[in-house]
Amino acid sequence: MALSKEEVSRIAELARLKLDDGEVEKFTTQLSYILEQFQILQEVDTTDIPPTAQATPIKNVLRKDEVKPSLSVEEVLANAPDREGDFLRINTVLG
């Protein structure tokens, strides 16, 4: 196996995904198989090849720091699951 169950659990924690035991088992098998197929990448000689992050020739897009019309607070918060005034309400952060 390319991945252990412990590694899958650790990755899920990094990704803020709760998984039950059955999911850990299933994803360990599936992700291991997928990564084994992807070993083909390791066989490619990439000496002196720079990485490509995106395919356009555009670099450093800047705009003037100007105030422009934007959405109102009401519009932005209209989809909020829970709010208090102009704030989003969440569960306890510590504890």
């Binding site: 924690e13 990094l14 995904l17 998984l19 994803f27 306890t92 952060v93």
Partner: peptide, 28 residues
């Protein structure tokens, strides 16, 4: 119990298997 657990639970219920697979593949 807290906001981090809420997030992990929200994402467990809210995402389907393929989305979870790809999030984990990418995170890895």
């Amino acid at each position: 119990e807290n906001v981090l657990e809420d997030m992990a639970l929200t994402r467990q219920v809210g995402f389907g298997d393929e989305v979870k697979r790809r999030i984990m593949l990418g995170t890895y």
